[in-house]
């Protein structure tokens, strides 16, 4: 489990993080969302044991990461701009990691490398996408309990992206690996993360479980007969309401079945329960604070 409490950090006089707190449960994937410069990378660098916070604490399995070798053995950090030792080949990079990470699984590394069809060449000669794949191979072969990644899916094509997501989910399911991913792209996180936290200007402004959210908020369209009583709407927690002709569109905070039952009782002419994207939920739920979300929706 990763737990950050009132994390604060200043760069010179600029407050980069202001009392940020969040929790990542074991075996889950956490999406850290925010626009560029919101403070995501700083949080991640503190988590990786690179930086030290000024105030607050960040504990991984109850311990601090900074200069804690035993704990860092179980954490892999993948930066947004990848770095490989200059002139090192894929195999040499593997050897380097093997020397430093106690849980290194050489067999798995070889297997991943062949799975991605990566040749044993100097990593620096690879394309950006291929380098990212090497980074994932290294990360997963080190069998970390915690994988912390800064914008890991940027610049990957859809096929590779899907394959990597699959591998991540696989490790989470099999080994209960805990993953923290930062991204400025909400859509990308939608069917990957269990929880998301939104950071804006150094503050955590929202934390949600995505499954809960999807079950909590519903989108529905219906049409009633002319002149029918609409007073039943007052009982609902409506986030958003639209009317196009005779068709009503509602975004409601409610249980799916409960809502369907209430509406069905009105004998509507049309009743459709519609799928709802994460993006819409955030925008509607946040109301006035939505400005922050729009920034991260590209």
């Amino acid at each position: 489990m990763i737990k950050a409490v009132e994390l604060s950090k200043k760069f010179d006089r600029k407050q980069v993080l202001d009392q940020v707190g969040f929790q990542v449960k074991k075996g889950t994937i956490y999406g850290l969302l925010g626009s560029n410069g919101a403070g995501k990378t700083t949080i991640i660098r503190i988590l990786a044991g690179i930086l030290k916070q000024d105030k607050g604490s960040v504990l991984v399995d109850g311990k601090t990461v900074f200069e804690n070798v035993a704990l860092k053995q179980r954490i892999i950090f993948m930066p947004d701009i990848l770095y490989f030792l200059p002139q090192y080949t894929v195999k040499q990079m593997g050897r380097y990691y093997a020397d430093l990470y106690a849980n290194w699984d050489q067999q798995r590394y070889d297997q991943l490398i062949s799975q991605f069809k990566l040749e044993n060449k100097k990593v620096s000669t690879f394309s950006k996408g291929m380098q990212r794949q090497v980074a994932f191979c290294l990360a997963l072969a080190a069998k970390p309990d915690f994988l912390i990644m800064d914008e890991p899916l940027d610049g990957l094509d859809a096929v590779v992206r899907q394959r990597i997501k699959g591998l991540l989910i696989n490790d989470v399911a099999e080994r209960e690996m805990t993953v923290l991913i930062s991204s400025h792209n909400l859509r990308e996180m939608e069917n990957l993360c269990d929880d998301v936290g939104i950071v804006h200007k150094g503050k955590m402004i929202l934390e949600r479980n995505l499954d809960d959210m999807k079950t909590e908020v519903q989108k529905v369209q219906f049409a009633l007969r002319k002149g029918q009583d609409m007073s039943f709407l007052e009982e609902l927690n409506i986030l958003h309401q639209e009317k196009r002709g005779s068709i009503h569109l509602l975004i409601v905070k409610a249980d799916h079945q409960e809502l369907e039952r209430i509406l069905a009782a009105q004998n509507p002419v049309i009743l459709d329960m519609l799928p709802l994207s994460l993006e819409e939920i955030f925008i509607y739920e946040m109301g006035g604070a939505g400005y922050a979300i729009e920034n991260i929706l590209d």
């Binding site: 660098r45 990786a48 770095y83």
Partner: peptide, 14 residues
């Protein structure tokens, strides 16, 4: 920054 982050995220003391 890149190399510094890489090295210092590794499990080895300064």
């Amino acid at each position: 920054k890149q190399t510094s982050d890489f090295v210092h995220s590794m499990p080895i003391k300064r």
